[in-house]
Design a protein around this nucleic acid. Sequence first.
DNA 1: CTGGATCCATTGTGATACTG
DNA 2: CAGTATCACAATGGATCCAG
Lengths: 127, 127
Amino acid sequence: MYQKKISRTLECGVVLTKEVLHGKWKSTLLHFIAQGVQRPSSLQRAIPMATRRVLNIQLNELEQHGLVRKTVFPQLPPKVEYHLTGLGQSLLPVIAAMEQWGDEHRAELEQVLAATGVPPEVGVLRV
Amino acid sequence: MYQKKISRTLECGVVLTKEVLHGKWKSTLLHFIAQGVQRPSSLQRAIPMATRRVLNIQLNELEQHGLVRKTVFPQLPPKVEYHLTGLGQSLLPVIAAMEQWGDEHRAELEQVLAATGVPPEVGVLRV
DNA sequence: CTGGATCCATTGTGATACTG
DNA sequence: CAGTATCACAATGGATCCAG
């Protein structure tokens, strides 16, 4: 077993960042929440190609990871709002860097990715 | 069908960046290739917790995406080298930004991620 | 309006063994 | 040394239905 002597400490920041961003709609959700779209139904309308189920799952993960905070208003009908935490806001420049790189090199990437499988509906949202 | 009128153009850079970095060992491979570790067997020794198969698959994807170039020397025994392309090098600052964010916020992230599933052996490599 | 449960298809990754 | 084939399993995400 390779891991016998390896510390459990997570030493690589890239892995952590990939982990919190892992999930098809996480960056999209962060984008819209940062823009002020905060309620589940609004997010659902903003991202119609994702199902409620997946949106809920990924919102829960974002909350668990501390990137967003969820506020529940005990009403009828129920009302829920999400907003970015400080941690979530600190991630925005990193996402911006990723977006800039992808935008700058889209021409070089598009043909290969189109052939080998980026679903087009994902890309049309500015995340 | 939502996509009826949606252009196939991939408009969001984040999706492109996530795509080329998608795969458990891609950032690790880029890290070591950038450091000058270029031969498959060396990469295998550098990342012993990944199997040859997965390393080959992800190296092939990196090559298809244009981030690395593969050079085959027709010898016996065969010799292969990888090196970063310009596109691959242009991605390094983005990876660095991801690594920095993860490093800065490790304390806030570690407990949650440890509980919900980052395998420890991944994190110990500085990617 | 919110969110969970179930079922299912696809994909990513690991274990192993094999070929040139 | 380099690369591939096959089998197996876990995780992701989509469709649909149900509940407070």
